[in-house]
């Protein structure tokens, strides 16, 4: 049986029909065509699929689309303005927080949530904040530097 639900993604409401077992990740990628969020492990381990659901960072691979009915969802596509990168995205590039880029959409979402909850995190707090996001390329230093810099510069994320 399919359920009619509404997903408010990056400020736009989308009406979709989903099966109970459909993950939020695949509803957003396949049905809405927003493919910024990635599937790494499909088991809550890597964070590549991370989205904000009502402001809360959530592994969308392990969250049913029906659970998100009516919720406000933010994906990496919602961080910048059109082709304009957000300050956080820009410093990720400048500080070497991105290499292959696979973890980046989820990493940016985790960092956004962290900075919203704690605008001046320490390096340790940043490492804890992104501990649910695995990156096999950067060694995390560039990511921590980027988040520290955005918070120091006080730019809105």
């Amino acid at each position: 049986m399919k359920h009619p639900i509404t997903l408010n993604v990056n400020g736009t409401p989308y009406s979709v029909d989903v099966a109970t077992a459909q993950s939020l990740l695949y509803a957003v990628r396949d049905q809405l065509g927003l493919t910024g969020s990635k599937e790494g492990c499909d088991d809550s381990e890597c964070g590549a699929c991370m989205m904000l659901v009502d402001g809360r960072p959530t592994n969308s691979c392990s969250y049913l689309a029906v659970q998100a009915d009516g919720a406000e969802i933010t994906t990496v596509e919602g961080l910048g303005e059109g082709d304009e990168l957000s300050p956080l995205q820009q410093v990720f590039l400048e500080e070497g927080g991105v290499q292959c880029g696979f973890c980046t959409p989820g990493m940016l979402i985790a960092a956004t949530a962290l900075l919203q909850a704690n605008p001046s995190p320490t390096a340790e707090e940043i490492r804890i904040g992104v501990s649910g996001n695995l990156c096999r390329c950067t060694g995390y230093d560039g990511i921590v530097r980027a988040v520290l810099r955005v918070s120091r510069e006080g730019a809105s994320v």
């Binding site: 499909d42 392990s62 049913l64 659970q67």
Partner: peptide, 13 residues
């Protein structure tokens, strides 16, 4: 019952 779904959604999947 489903609560947070962090375990059950994977089992269903």
């Amino acid at each position: 019952v489903l609560a947070g779904g962090t375990d059950l959604s994977g089992l269903i999947d």
